[in-house]
Simulated scan of single mutants.
Amino acid sequence: MDFSLLYFVNRETVDASREYQLLFDTAEFADRNGFTAVWLPERHFHPFGGAYPNPALAAAALAARTRRVRLRAGSVVVPLHDPLSVVEDWSFVDNVSRGRVDLALATGWNPDDFALAPERYATRREYTFEALDEIKDLWAGKKVKRRNGLGEEVELSTYPRPVQPEPRLWFTCSSNPESFEEAGARGLNVLTALLFQSTDELAASIASYRAARERNGHDPATGVVTLMLHTFVGESDAVAKELVRGPFTDYLLSSIDLWKTRWSDLGRSHPGRLAKVAFERYFHRAALFGSVERCTAFARDLRAAGVDEIASLVDFGVADSDVLSMLPRLDEVRLNLRTAAAGTRS
């Protein structure tokens, strides 16, 4: 199982000079210690995740600070962009990083984000898959047709040319089994989470994904399923729970007004009680919280369910110093999984 880091900070800027220091420090740790990738999100107009309005900008900053770790969009909200700008931005990062870019593509869901492209909200899913083909073509050096400022039809290529001949692509799925099947049918990898699905439901969706790959001529064993998990590996279960309870509860509360637009049941629940129940759910079965032993056991269960990679969300509000001191324990979990896999192969 691969391990990577993922970011979705919630905070108002209180110290601009240190706003991204945790990102830099944790990414450099990942780069030095054999983690597979770092994932950068796209968020707009809200403090929940809003430190990352363009993942390519964050990836470009990390490209100059790292040497081997993959730099991944997690995710580009495709309907908010023209494929031309997606490929231009990420080709630049591919050059600076010497070919370390991967892309996860998302349809988007928050209506306010679509202030950038209101005409695409209703057809955002269809637009995403149409744009996917253009992104592939542009990355490969092909031209696409557009109308210029004079109303003339022109054929355009993007520059700079990327280092990699083609990017590895993920499709971001929430809990809809049909999305997993669509990703499988198109030969895409999957980026998902346990926000609104159980481990058993995820295992069923992964099975559907593998079957869809096979039905459509793709090797069912080669698609990568990456699972985002909020992560804090503590010295013990009790220490971890105590450290994350306050920050993570605040983190959950900060996002409720966003999720109401998609899950109307949230609006009928008292926020404090909802956050308390959600915290217990996450701690026991939907996050990588606890001791090295507990987190290793959960990761093994996820691997048995079909997960290929854990993307650890580390910037949900725990003090930066505690996050940094946690990282060697997360690395222990990663190495435990690697040792177990090596033992199975032998």
Score class of each variant (00 low, 15 high):
residue 166 E to Y: 14
residue 30 A to E: 04
residue 128 T to S: 14
residue 171 F to Y: 15
residue 150 L to I: 00
residue 40 L to G: 05
residue 338 R to N: 01
residue 163 V to T: 12
residue 24 F to P: 00
residue 113 D to K: 02
residue 212 A to V: 05
residue 16 A to V: 08
residue 187 G to T: 01
residue 80 L to E: 06
residue 312 S to H: 04
residue 153 E to Q: 12
residue 75 S to L: 14
residue 122 A to I: 10
residue 200 D to K: 13
residue 152 E to Q: 15
residue 11 R to W: 01
residue 205 S to L: 03
residue 66 T to Q: 08
residue 120 R to E: 09
residue 99 G to D: 15
residue 160 P to Q: 12
residue 287 A to G: 04
residue 232 F to P: 01
residue 178 E to L: 10
residue 20 Y to N: 07
residue 109 W to R: 10
residue 240 A to L: 07
residue 175 S to L: 03
residue 242 E to D: 15
residue 73 A to K: 02
residue 25 D to L: 09
residue 117 A to C: 12
residue 118 P to G: 12
residue 276 K to L: 14
residue 204 A to R: 06
residue 137 D to F: 03
residue 265 D to R: 13
residue 33 N to C: 10
residue 315 D to Y: 04
residue 64 A to N: 06
residue 39 W to D: 00
residue 5 L to T: 02
residue 58 A to P: 02
residue 225 V to E: 01
residue 140 A to L: 15
residue 303 R to Q: 11
residue 289 F to L: 07
residue 324 L to H: 05
residue 146 R to N: 04
residue 139 W to S: 15
residue 221 A to S: 09
residue 267 G to T: 02
residue 98 R to L: 06
residue 219 D to I: 12
residue 19 E to M: 07
residue 165 P to N: 11
residue 77 V to A: 04
residue 185 A to S: 12
residue 341 A to M: 09
residue 233 V to R: 01
residue 329 R to P: 05
residue 219 D to A: 09
residue 68 R to L: 04
residue 312 S to N: 11
residue 154 V to H: 01
residue 135 I to H: 14
residue 238 A to S: 14
residue 332 E to P: 00
residue 8 F to Y: 12
residue 237 D to V: 05
residue 270 H to T: 14
residue 237 D to I: 06
residue 205 S to W: 03
residue 11 R to D: 00
residue 3 F to K: 05
residue 55 P to V: 09
residue 28 E to W: 09
residue 253 L to G: 02
residue 55 P to R: 09
residue 18 R to L: 11
residue 99 G to K: 08
residue 163 V to A: 10
residue 198 S to A: 06
residue 328 P to K: 09
residue 93 V to C: 06
residue 43 R to Q: 00
residue 6 L to G: 08
residue 110 N to V: 04
residue 345 R to D: 00
residue 13 T to F: 04
residue 277 V to M: 13
residue 290 G to Q: 07
residue 108 G to Q: 06
residue 343 G to E: 14
residue 297 A to Y: 02
residue 120 R to C: 06
residue 130 E to V: 14
residue 344 T to Q: 12
residue 54 N to M: 13
residue 37 A to N: 12
residue 319 A to S: 08
residue 277 V to C: 09
residue 205 S to G: 06
residue 338 R to A: 01
residue 63 A to Q: 05
residue 284 H to W: 07
residue 208 S to P: 00
residue 278 A to I: 02
residue 300 R to N: 11
residue 88 E to K: 13
residue 127 Y to H: 13
residue 165 P to R: 15
residue 52 Y to I: 04
residue 301 D to P: 02
residue 224 V to P: 08
residue 209 Y to N: 05
residue 99 G to I: 08
residue 337 L to Q: 05
residue 49 G to V: 00
residue 182 E to W: 10
residue 173 C to A: 11
residue 282 Y to M: 07
residue 178 E to Q: 13
residue 79 P to K: 02
residue 162 P to D: 14
residue 138 L to Y: 06
residue 198 S to K: 02
residue 225 V to L: 08
residue 46 H to Q: 05
residue 9 V to I: 05
residue 326 M to D: 07
residue 143 K to E: 01
residue 217 G to N: 13
residue 285 R to Q: 11
residue 185 A to G: 05
residue 109 W to K: 07
residue 270 H to C: 09
residue 267 G to D: 08
residue 213 R to T: 03
residue 107 T to K: 12
residue 154 V to Q: 10
residue 218 H to N: 11
residue 66 T to A: 10
residue 258 L to D: 03
residue 106 A to L: 05
